[in-house]
Write a protein that binds this DNA or RNA. Structure first.
Lengths: 244, 244
DNA sequence: CGTGACTTTGATCAACTTCAAGCTACGTGG
DNA sequence: CCACGTAGCTTGAAGTTGATCAAAGTCACG
């Protein structure tokens, strides 16, 4: 899963419409490309950066997928999110200048390295880039809010269904199939992300299979009944009172 | 609780070190003040803005406190966060241009209204302001991540303890007492924010009282044993294996 | 003093976790 | 090529935490 690695720099990158260059003029994208270091390659379980390390770069996913997590004082992980191609990692460091989470590769992948200081300079020169940065930051915030809703008031089944839909939409936006894809993360990662145990995730996936809504074969997932999966996530009033 | 309303504009505002002006030159602060509309006053339960309304302004809390929440398709609320003086509201709208949550006043309070378009222009002119905006956005992201950790892997007691500590630190940073304060939100709001029920919050507060860690009297809270409260939030390995 | 909103407390119940065992896929070495 | 080992996943049974249901208590305000 994921784009095959490529050396294409921003003006020729197929992800440019999802990534930093979105909304920029062609010459502005070229300017941006001059500060972006292509590309760092990571193997499965390789660390992109470590929690509390100094943040000198932001990273854009070029291929593969990544997982970011926070380590508690008691040594337990909480997965914060998964990143797919075109998404920006490291934004949580903008306040303190240090990464507040660690990020590792879920599979072989590559990233573009964007020096933070140069990016800030360029934002002053290119208003469109500054706007796009705000948009990207706003997106991160909005998506974190969605996660808060997910963890705050959802049953196990709703969480698992939401997780699948989230991936479905994001793969779809990348031009991949939104109904058939491989999970690049382990059950453990999913469980941790959703605030559940691995057993509960397994059971809910089995349940969804039994209902004919999805087919699961190890890491492989196929969504059979997308509308039904959606109603699980947003149980509308009309679906609850089926009779009355 | 909260600052008494004041008409002071940015250069004279006692919150300037926490708010947008942080890190700016005096003349830059004055420039910023020209675009900030002082001030909109809200009564308890008054809406500052509504979910999915067009976002034309960001808001800085000048006095009082606020609560933001997302309304689900099925009509239930999830409280996303509480805002105290100096904090910026509306950042979740930067992606789509529409607020992704609603925000209401928990008590009588006031806000500074910052037109988004003018702010973007000014960010291009004042590099320090652009940096500070990034810092503020990064802070929002980092604090959202903390909430995700909270909701993902914490027991009811840990959640309530964390909530109290969060408020304690923020009130402290504002120059108020970090150990004695009034909750401006109802139990219902706390419960909803923490992903618990109102009964559970009540019981956990009672429990903490019984242990002599806090004193609760309606909305009033006094933290008696701050260190102990902290160990509840971060149960270190050394505290778990008390004997072995 | 009475009303209504909010909060506390108690008893029961359900969902999810924990503990335990077995299964599957995959890689390695005999 | 197959036996074996291991990591990851699934399934089952028992245990807990927090939710739900119900009722009583407290405070503010008219």
């Amino acid at each position: 899963m994921g784009f095959a690695p490529t050396k294409a720099s921003c003006p020729d990158c197929r992800l440019s419409e999802l990534c930093l260059p979105f909304g920029l003029q062609r010459n502005e994208v070229q300017q941006l490309a001059t500060i972006v270091k292509n590309q760092r390659v990571l193997q499965t379980d390789g660390y992109l950066y470590l929690q509390s390390a100094e943040c000198l770069h932001l990273y854009a996913v070029k291929s593969g997928s990544f997982r970011s997590f926070i380590l508690n004082a008691d040594g337990l992980e909480q997965t914060i999110g998964f990143y797919l191609p075109g998404e920006i990692m490291g934004l949580d460091a903008l306040q303190s200048g240090r990464y507040s989470c660690s990020t590792i590769a879920l599979e072989t992948g590559s990233v573009c390295e964007v020096p933070l200081s140069r990016l800030n300079e360029l934002c002053s020169e290119i208003p469109g880039l500054q706007i796009q940065m705000m948009r990207i930051l706003g997106k991160e915030i909005a998506s974190d809010h969605d996660k808060i809703v997910l963890l705050g008031h959802r049953t196990a089944k709703e969480r698992v269904a939401t997780f699948l839909l989230m991936l479905s939409r994001r793969y779809g936006a990348l031009g991949f199939s939104g109904t058939t894809f491989n999970l690049s993360m382990r059950r453990q990662d999913i469980a941790n992300f959703l605030g559940l145990t691995i057993e509960t995730v397994s059971r809910q996936l089995a349940e969804l299979s039994k209902q004919g809504i999805i087919i699961v074969k190890q890491r492989g997932v196929e969504i059979i009944d997308l509308p039904l999966l959606t109603t699980i996530v947003e149980p509308c009033v009309t679906h609850r009172h089926t009779i009355a």
